[in-house]
Each structure stands twice: as structure tokens, then as C-alpha cells.
Nucleic acid binder design. Structure first.
Lengths: 177, 177, 177, 177
DNA sequence: GGCTAACCGAGACGGTACGTCCAGTCTTCGT
DNA sequence: ACGAAGACTGGACGTACCGTCTCGGTTAGCC
């Protein structure tokens, strides 16, 4: 593995930064996450971080997009059973996974960082919607909205029952026949 | 109003801190909001702030709870028409009002501050649900979840059409008769 | 001893900074002397240093002027015997004392720092000349110049013989009678 | 001129480094002179500098010795008239020439760099003394010392009058006859 | 005339210190 | 007793250079 030459950046440094950022976020939380801490944990000079990223959120976004997106690939289609399964996966992702912790931190920062908000939407949320196979955006929002609401806002547990009721109410049995 | 006295805290100082915090949040965003900045704008010593609040989020929470909660009082009851009206008010609050900006910032911080999250829930969200007159929490979440989702996550516009469809889907006409 | 209050600066902090700077200069030399190192050795925050001094040379000048000037008070008058004694003291100061090490460092910096050069002249050199009781500046320079030259430039030892010859040549015996 | 060969270093690179160092010293002063700056100005890679010089002072010394020494060749011998002329040339060199600026910077660094001090003495000062034709070192020092003193220490102007008095005092008319 | 060694430029790397900013604590004075 | 003022320790910020390194390109001189 090369480190510092005219071919450009060191992949080794890049990966250890992303991993360190991920780990430290989960360990100490966003507020206690510092560039200096990441550099130290990654065994990398601060300047190397500033050369390639402009802020800690950008590091997290990078880490999130590269190692988390695929975990979340919805499968199946918009049929109710598949929908329920995918919503359960979404709930697990948002509330239980490490990548979800990173996502919550990014979502939080996006509240006062429009550029980050835009990147999160185009590079993650929009792709989620596409992969889920929904043509009706409002319908999609009525399904995932309550999940995000509990995960990000109330913190209330997202039970299977909650998801089943949500799917049933959105696709009433009467309309299935 | 008294300043430097033996009669307890200065109401004048308290109000000018809350106002300064509110203003600076809207002007410069959460990240650029500092205790020192608030103290300077409010014409108050830093120590005075630390004596009564423990962090900038607590100042914001104080400001939010005292001057924004009442704006949001739902009216009417859980009947569909009132529900739609209240959801429209909620959407306006979250996306258009200054208090909404404070709320988004607080929500963001709550992602990595469990104490703040708890206070936001007990002192704001729970009361909202109560005042809205919903006995079924899951039903309430299916209604407001999509609103919060668009306001906090996707940033997509919350149109009247979106709200009407949401209400209609949640209370299908068939079930009204 | 007070530390940080509205009466102004902490004398304790001031003195420990000056002492730390002096010590570190002698121990490690000017190039290895850093503000961070001084702060650490003095048990003081970097900001406290930057609040009162603008550079490491200013700290050294402060230390030099306060603790070294009096050591050098010339005594007697411009009579040859007193002159020789005072020149010996000057030679010892420049080449052997800790304060002399600080002075050499300051002289060095003054080569590319006109403000420092000016302060050194007005606050130290001029006073030296005055205290020595010389009315003829050129005469004074012919006496001390060779001492400084050996101390700062050639590093050659300044022997008693060298000083005696210097005084004899400057005040020829013929002129004494 | 070649770049990339197996016959040793590029004269082109060497000269442009020396010139860049000289120029930058005069322009920005010793403290602001950096290896990176020299490399950039000279259009040369940093590594090329580190391959041939070990520090910025070594570059300056190289530049100084190669382009300044000859300017200073004393002429004539130790006779009073020649001496005065040579002292005037020395004063001009130290206070007015670009090479003098480099020399002052080197002298300054030599205060805390014994190796540099040694090289300056053997490769410049000793040769000066030899070329001046003085057998009595102390006598030489009594002549040049006051010049260096004013140039390096007090910054006071070195007038023709000052030099004439210096020579007269050192070689009293009575002793000439 | 292709090979190859020596030197070149470029520039990324791990580090250290810079000078600044803000956090949170403390002490004193004035009201 | 409280508020204003402001100095203090502490620590992260983002920047500038340090000195080291690896790489690809150029150019002799040799086979």
C-alpha cells in the first residue's frame, strides 16, 4: 500500500480515518467527536484529514455513505408483506445499528447545515425511495414518516405491532381483495 | 427593574438572555451560537448565564417552552377537519416560524443529549399529544410522523394536498359514514 | 495572591512565565523555545501568555529588563581603573551569565525585528551608556565595541590582558599625567 | 542546463536556490524565510533542497560565502589611510549591502548555533583578519569592534568622523612620526 | 539504440507549534 | 445577595512548515 506519493492519497489513511470517526461517534457522541481525536485514533496527521475533508460531518457522511447504504437495500417490492419487512429493517437501522447512530448525528447537523441536508437527500434518501420502488412519494412518506418520527423525535419503541398497524392502515384489507 | 440587589434574580437579565439566544440562533445558526455571544448581545456577564442555565441548549429550551408552546395549542378535537387544520398549523410551525427553527435545533441536539431529549418529550411532545385529544398514540404518530418527516428529514414542501391525503388515508371516508 | 479577577492580571502567572522563559532559553536555546513550552513549564494557559505578550522575544525582553539590568549597573566613573572593572563586568555578563544568554538571543532577534531593536536600545543600551557616565558616545563605543565584538561575533576569549590593553590604548598613559 | 542526469547535481537548481534564499531574506526577513518558500520561489522541489543543504542557514551561508566575500577584500595594508578606507568599506557592507543583511542574519543565528558560529569564523572572519594584514589580533579587534558594535548592536550611524576618530585614537599621530 | 543510474519535479505523509476561540470557573467591586 | 466585569485553565480549532517518503519523467553514458 502506498502512502504519500504522486499518485495521490493514501487509501490506508482514508480508511482508518473513516473507521476512527465511526467508532468515536458511537463511543463518545457527536459533541465529543473532534478532528484531533479522529486523527489520533486513526494514527494520521490532522493535516491529512483537512486535506481531504472539510469538517467532521463530511467525514461522517463519507463513512455513512460508503459502509451503510448497502445494509439498507430494500428488497422485494411495494407489496404489503415486503413493505412491512423493509420498514422493520428501517426501524432496526435507525434505532439499533451503528450506522443509524451516524445517520441520526448527520440528520441533526443537517438541521443547521443546508449543504449537508442536500447531500443527505440526494445521496441517501432519494436513493432509498427509488430502491423501494414507490412511485407515489406521498404514500412513501406516510409509511416511513411515522418510523422516522419515533426514531428521531419521540424515541418511543417501534414495535412490530406498530409497523403492522401502519401497513394495515395504509393498505387497508378492503383494498387488497 | 432592579440590577444588583438582594431580591433574587433579575427578570430583566433573564428575558434579555432568552431573547438574545433566540435572535442569534435565527441569525447565525446553532453552531455559531455561543454563550459568550449571547452574554455580549444580552449585555449580561457570562457568569450570570452560567448561574441560571447549564448550557446553550437549556437556554433555547427555556425560550422555546415559554414563548412558543402556546402558539401551537391544537384546537378542536380529533375530528378529521380539525385534525387537518391542526396539522397545517404544525407544518407551518415546524417549517416557517422562528420557534420552529429553535425546535429543529433542539431536536437536533437531542439526538446526542438524552437529558434534553427527555425534557423535550415530557415538556413539549407529550403535552401536544394530550392537547390534541388522541387516545391512540399510534394513530397520532401516523398523522404527525409524515409531517415531521418532511419537515426534519426530507425538507420537501408540506402542501395542503399532502395533508388532506394524509387525513383521508388515515380516516377513510368509508369509515366516516 | 489573586488569580484572575477584575483587578487585572495575576502577578503569580506573570512571574512564572518570565522564569520559565528564562530557564528554557538557557536549557534549550532560542530556536527550541516555544510559547507552548513556556506555558507548560510555567503551569499557565497559552491564552494567558498571548493576553500579555505578543511573542516569545517580548517575554524574554521583559524578563531581561526586570531581572538583569541591575546586575550590570556600572559603578565608579569614567576613570581608567573603574572603566577596566566595568568592562570586565560587561565581558562576564555577555559571555558567562544567564542574563547574557538572554541578551545574546535578543540581540540576535533584533537583527530582523526593528521594534525589538529599538526597545533594546532605549530600554537597555542607552541606559548603560548614561550610567557609565560617558559624555562622548564615540569614546564609549570604542571601549565597549571590542568587547561586544568578541562576545557576539568571534567568540574569542576576553582576557584581562585584552581589556587592559584596550583601556591603555584608549587612555594612553601620556595623557594621564 | 540539464535536469535529470547521472553526473551530479544540477547547477541550475543550485543557483536558483541561492538566489531565491537571498531575495527572500531581504524581502521578508529571516523569521519569514522558509524552506518551502525558497523551494517555491526557486521553482525547485523541497527534496532537492534537503538533498544538498541541511537547513536554511546553511543555504544562506553558502550564498553569503560565494557571492559576498570578494566584495569585501581589504586592499592595501595596515597603514592608517588604508585602514580607514577598509573600515569604511566594512561599515558599508554591514549596514547597506544585501550581503550584509545576510551576514547579520547569519551572525544572529550563530548566537544559538555553535556549528554555524564556527563556520562563520573559519570561513569568513579569520580570512578577513588575514587579508587585512594584521598580526596583532587585539589591535584588529579594537578597530573593527566598534564598527560591528554600531552595525549589529546600537544601529547608530557609522559616520566618516567616527571612523577617522577611531583610527586616530588607535594610531595616535604622536606614534607616527 | 535501448538500458539504466542519478537527479529532477511534485506532492502526500506524520508531526509540532502556531495564534485564536470558546468553555466553564473564579474573584472582586459596585449597587 | 446579586449582577457586571474580566482574568484564569483547558482544549480544540484550522493553518503553516517541518523533514521524510515515493513516484514518474528526463537525461546522460554505457553496452
Amino acid at each position: 500500500m502506498h502512502r504519500g506519493n504522486r499518485h495521490g492519497r493514501s487509501e490506508e489513511a482514508r480508511l482508518s480515518v473513516l473507521e476512527a470517526a465511526d467508532d468515536l461517534l458511537v463511543e463518545k457522541g457527536f459533541a465529543q467527536l473532534t478532528i484531533e481525536g479522529i486523527a489520533q485514533r486513526a494514527g494520521v496527521a490532522k493535516q491529512t484529514i483537512y486535506r481531504w475533508w472539510s469538517s467532521k460531518t463530511e467525514i461522517l457522511l463519507d463513512a455513512f455513505l460508503s459502509d451503510a447504504a448497502e445494509d439498507l437495500n430494500p428488497r422485494g417490492n411495494a407489496a404489503p408483506d415486503d413493505v412491512a419487512t423493509n420498514l422493520r429493517r428501517l426501524a432496526w437501522f435507525l434505532t439499533r445499528s451503528d450506522a443509524g447512530a451516524v445517520f441520526r448525528a448527520l440528520m441533526a447537523e443537517a438541521q443547521h447545515d443546508p449543504a449537508l441536508a442536500a447531500r443527505l437527500r440526494t445521496e441517501y434518501l432519494d436513493k432509498q425511495k427509488e430502491r423501494a420502488g414507490f412511485t407515489d412519494g406521498a404514500l412513501f412518506d406516510r409509511l416511513v414518516g411515522p418510523i422516522y418520527y419515533r426514531a428521531l423525535v419521540t424515541g418511543e419503541e417501534i414495535t412490530d405491532r406498530f409497523i403492522d398497524d401502519l401497513v394495515t392502515a395504509t393498505f387497508p384489507p378492503a383494498s387488497r381483495a
